[in-house]
Nucleic acid binder design. Structure first.
Length: 427
RNA sequence: UCCCCGUUAGCUCAAUUGGCAGAGCAGGUGGCUGUUAACCACAAGGUUGUAGGUUCGAGUCCUACACGGGGAGCCA
């Protein structure tokens, strides 16, 4: 039996295979908190039931030792979770000695050094289960809408955007780079399959040392042929709302463990507010932040704007030249591009960046040259504008930042099993 | 790359003006028949990040370096 199914086994004899999370004893009774990956269950062992020998064995089981217990499932208000196991038999698989993570407080540095063990603790268990739910619901959302999953390459010959933030590696004697984005490849794929998305790791060698940055993070990038800018925003707000609803429905226990107030999440429903870049500047001016046309927002600015709303908010129509080279100028106001960032509430900042892509061959060629990109590398990308070019667009959603917001975590490093941070790659 | 803070027992932290390095947890031993990060008792645990300097005397003051944390820029 798995612990999460305990309520279906009341009165029955079952076997739990797991690890000792913690134990307490009181003379001739011991309480073993056993975890099996699906949950934690209090198991009671009394000397009168099992005899002195087995009782003594149980006393020797240390924190995180692996063990198998057999007994009867009982409903009991005194047990955390409402169910406990009355132990009849216990087998030790392996005794763990000197487990470094005690039930008391630890610092982040120590916990990160022991990330491989930290994953076993309750809070990390809850967070990573929410991560799994988010990933699954994202896939479900796109699969239900007829999107085709296209895996983008991780080794690439050139940069999608800037060249300073790339991890370089040797590819049989020529330089190759770890992917920064699958987007350009998705543009090719959407011309073949109509609606596509990729979901995988991306790499940024930025020397960023903040609560919002990882050097390796996961991004989901849809790309849709013939989509309009407005349809793109609708897709994003429907996707976010779908994911939040799935987490609220499927992760009640996990949200409780991490102490997440779910009220702000319950408000997440389309439509999301839309703020023109020009009006975002005005909001900031009223808050005492004077920015010039063309200035980008930092973390503080994003927080000021998102705090004006109790839902995620789109900021759109950024000045041309401020964003990536492939973004399409709005024909109605050509000094801006048809791009939008989605800012999460509660100060979590940008979780989505999306845009219409340039579909005109000559304009794209001009932009590539203007950005000093090597034309050789973009020949195939230009081909897409040569052979049946169509209006198209898409976006990229950062998984870790989305999870940090939904779980209201102070730092993204807890949102990924093994975070890769500035100059840190162990374990 | 820049700014700020920190580094004392395995872990989390104390240590007054520069004057005998100390708790809790973990680990050890013993006790307790319903515990909830259980509790009680006892014992053990230290080259105070490294290198130099000031001083009768440095965990404490100064300099450099290393490592860690937070933030800026940049970005999802």
């Amino acid at each position: 039996m798995y612990i999460e199914e305990a309520k279906n086994f009341v009165g029955q004899e079952v076997e739990i295979k797991g690890w000792l999370y913690n134990s307490r004893s009181s003379g001739k009774v011991q309480f073993l908190l056993v975890r099996d990956g699906t949950g934690i269950m209090q198991c009671v062992i009394s000397q009168n039931d099992v005899g002195e020998r087995l009782f003594k064995d149980a006393e020797k089981v240390t924190q995180e030792s692996s063990l198998i217990v057999k007994g009867i499932v009982k409903q009991d208000e005194r047990a955390p979770g409402g169910f406990e196991l009355v132990i009849k038999d216990l087998t030790v698989v392996q005794i763990a000695s000197d487990y470094p993570i005690s039930p008391k407080e630890h610092g982040v540095g120590f916990l990160m050094e022991n990330r491989h063990l930290w994953l076993r603790s309750r809070r990390q268990w809850a967070i990573l289960r929410i991560r799994s739910t988010i990933e699954n619901s994202l896939r479900e959302f796109f699969n239900e809408r007829g999107f085709i999953l296209i895996d983008a390459p991780i080794l690439t010959p050139a940069a999608a955007e800037g060249t300073t933030t790339l991890f370089e590696t040797d590819y049989f004697g020529v330089p190759a780079y770890l992917s920064q984005s699958g987007q350009l490849y998705m543009e090719a794929a959407c011309m073949a399959f109509g609606k596509v998305y990729c979901f995988g790791p991306t790499f940024r060698a930025e020397k960023s040392k903040t609560r919002r940055h990882l050097t390796e993070f996961w991004m989901l990038e849809p790309e849709i042929a013939y989509i309009t800018f407005e349809e793109n925003l609708q897709l994003q707000e429907e996707m976010i709302s779908f994911v939040v609803k799935k987490v609220l429905a499927n992760c009640k226990e996990e949200l409780k463990i991490i102490g997440r107030d779910t009220k702000p999440l319950e408000k997440v429903d389309p439509p999301f507010p839309r703020i023109h870049y020009r009006d975002a500047l005005e909001i900031l001016r009223q808050k005492g932040k004077e920015l010039k046309w063309g200035d980008d927002f930092g973390g503080d600015e994003e927080t000021l704007i998102s705090n004006e709303f109790d839902k995620p908010v789109f900021v759109h129509h950024f000045p041309e030249g401020m964003k990536a080279f492939y973004m399409k100028p709005d024909p109605l106001e050509p000094q801006t591009v048809l791009a939008a960032d989605l800012l999460a509430p509660e100060g979590y900042g940008e979780i989505i960046g999306g845009s219409q892509r340039i579909d005109d061959y000559n304009l794209l060629l001009q932009r590539i040259k203007k950005n000093n990109l090597n034309l050789e590398n973009y020949k195939w990308y230009l081909d897409l504008r040569k052979y049946g070019s169509v209006p198209h667009g898409g976006f990229g959603i950062g998984l870790e930042r989305t999870l940090a917001w939904i779980a209201k975590l102070p730092h993204v490093r807890e949102t990924i099993p093994f975070p890769r941070l500035l100059e840190k790659i162990y374990p």
